[in-house]
């Protein structure tokens, strides 16, 4: 980080619906300094009367210059997310501060295996890692375990299916907690410790792990990984509240 983080003016360039409740916002940010997979930004909205509010959102794509992508999940009674998902118009301004975070970051140059575990929209910063690995042509193995309520809630579904099929060394496992697609052999329900153990590499391997999701999910998964023998210091976590506001 070259100096104090200023608020940067940004403009909505494109909105891509991802699910019924989530959209990816592509924002143009003149002077964007670049970022690493896993980092987030603070977004500030200011009303005409001067009232201002801010939220943190993960960056969904690797560094592509002066545009950044945020995937925002609409929280029903939220103050900010319904506005961003439904109402912000092309060309409308917001302010961004970032990139933020030097801990929950991944680099395609890491030689080790990477385990990614996502709960719900916690997949967003992990998707930036999957995409960065693809763009860099990185060879180190990566596994994404993505826990989500129903098939309709899967973010980036088509791209994840494609990446998992085409990217050498990448495995994608989507587990459904409420409703599974027809033909899915796995019974619906939360990820169990045994299941994490079967999807993850053995704890004897050198693995760097990133877990992102709601607080309860992250605490559960991180605790399970430690119980399976994973080194606490090799598990990086990012939690959000109920789901962002």
């Amino acid at each position: 980080m070259p100096g104090p983080l200023p608020w940067l003016p940004a403009y909505l360039v494109e909105r891509r619906p991802e699910t019924a409740a989530a959209a990816t916002l592509v924002l143009g940010v003149p002077g964007w300094p670049g970022h690493l997979p896993g980092q987030h930004v603070d977004v500030r909205l200011t009303a005409d009367d001067g009232y201002s509010t801010q939220r943190s959102y993960s960056l969904a794509a690797p560094d592509h210059g002066a545009t950044v992508e945020l995937t925002v999940q609409r929280v029903a009674d939220g103050e900010v997310s319904p506005f961003l998902v439904d109402d912000l118009a092309i060309g409308d301004p917001v302010e961004l501060r970032g990139p933020v975070g030097g801990w929950f970051v991944w680099s395609p140059t890491l030689p080790t295996r990477t385990l990614l575990v996502a709960g719900g929209s916690g997949v967003v910063p992990l998707m930036a890692m999957v995409r960065a690995r693809h763009e860099a042509g990185a060879a180190a193995p990566m596994r994404l375990v993505y826990s989500v309520r129903t098939p309709d809630d899967v973010l980036y579904a088509a791209e994840l299916e494609r990446r998992g099929r085409l990217d050498e060394g990448l495995e994608i496992h989507v587990v459904h907690t409420r409703r599974a697609p027809p033909g899915d052999a796995r019974p619906t329900g939360r990820l169990t410790r045994e299941e994490i153990g079967s999807l993850a590499w053995p704890a004897t391997e050198e693995v760097l792990t990133y877990v992102c999701g709601p607080t309860g999910f992250v605490d559960q998964v991180a605790g399970d990984l430690v119980a399976l023998g994973y080194d606490d210091h090799r598990i990086r976590t990012e939690r959000f509240g109920a789901t962002g506001g």
Binding site: P4, H40, S56, R97, V100, T215, F240
Partner: peptide
């Protein structure tokens, strides 16, 4: 509750380092 990642922005804005 969130976690300390959420304080990175405001601290970075004033301190100039992550």
């Amino acid at each position: 509750p969130l976690d300390g990642n959420g304080l990175g922005g405001v601290l970075g804005a004033f301190l100039g380092v992550d």
